[in-house]
Design a protein around this nucleic acid. Structure first.
Length: 286
DNA sequence: GGGGCATGCTAAG
DNA sequence: TTAGCCTGCCCCT
């Protein structure tokens, strides 16, 4: 689930439910018990996102820093918190589901949020939070950020543009789906070295990321297919293997390109699966 | 019940 | 470049 749009959405979701509220904090799993105790009973003042990092501010007590990694999830509920029984199967004979995987639970009388499987869940200081910001590149979802700093690094780099887009020091918040999709939408060969990328193409990529990721926050889903290429518009069946919205190439290896019917290709790039259309994203003098 | 896989990242080598 | 980590889900037996 988690690319940058997910985290920004989660920051919004926390603000809606908890901002200005006194919250109870606990760690049913136990691994964040000490940290939870330090913010328990305090007011959640801020909820911020930068790239894939989420920060929950508790004033003088500091910030809870959360990174979901590949598997982490944050789920919200409205029932009064009396253990995580929401998903308990009705059938007898099944053990209660893994309440003990909840690393952090925040709760008011009305709402609760359960965090499972994060890579990072730690109580940090203002200075430590600033250090996280300092090692992240500009984020297309932060209004004050722009692509200039990223361009300076990309335009000097021999690394492929596909790898650069996933480097959080260069651009913060882009993940494997947006990477593949934005390169397709701009017709750019993923193996093009950063320093061979045209300035205009970078500007277009950045603008596209801003627009796509904003839509991602709004719908809590990654949609990258232009209206004229949607299934209904083209008379193609909607995506079935659905992890989200409609996409052009992500996880479509060996299937025909929506635009030119060429077989979508896949390859390993820096331990992640890359997808692209060799015809729509040609290698050329660029 | 087990294996593989996933929208991520880091430390070690 | 690789192993390791965190969890859930889907497929297979």
């Amino acid at each position: 689930m988690p690319e940058g749009h997910t985290i920004h959405r989660l920051a919004l979701d926390h603000r809606e439910r908890f901002a200005g509220e006194t919250v109870r904090a606990s760690s049913p799993q136990g691994r964040f018990a000490a940290g939870a105790a330090l913010v328990d009973g305090r007011v959640l003042e801020r909820a911020e996102a930068h790239g894939k990092h989420l920060f929950l501010g508790f004033g003088p007590a500091g910030w809870i820093h959360i990174h979901l990694g590949l598997f982490g999830k944050l789920g919200f509920g409205t029932a009064p918190s009396s253990g995580d029984l929401r998903h308990t199967p009705v059938q007898a004979g099944f053990p209660a589901p893994a309440a003990d995987t909840v690393r952090l639970r925040l709760a008011t009388g009305e709402h609760h949020a359960d965090l499972r499987g994060p890579t990072v869940c730690a109580l940090i200081t203002d200075a430590e939070k600033q250090a996280v910001h300092d090692r992240l590149g500009p984020d297309p979802l932060r209004p004050e950020d722009d692509g200039e700093r990223a361009w300076r690094r990309i335009s000097r780099s021999r690394t492929t543009v596909a790898a650069l887009l996933l480097d959080q020091k260069i651009v913060a918040g882009v993940g494997n789906v947006y990477r593949a999709e934005v390169l397709f939408r701009r017709g750019i060969d993923p193996y093009l070295p950063g320093r061979a990328l045209a300035r205009d193409d970078w500007d277009a990529i950045w603008a596209d990321l801003v627009a796509l990721m904003r839509e991602g926050v709004r719908h809590n889903r990654i949609d990258t297919v232009r209206p004229e290429h949607m299934p209904e518009a083209m008379g193609r069946p909607p995506r079935v293997d659905d992890h989200g919205g409609e996409v052009y190439v992500y996880r479509r290896a060996h299937q025909p390109c929506h635009l030119c019917a060429t077989e979508i290709r896949t390859a390993d790039l820096a331990a992640r699966n890359l997808f692209w259309c060799p015809r729509c994203q040609p290698t050329n003098g660029g």
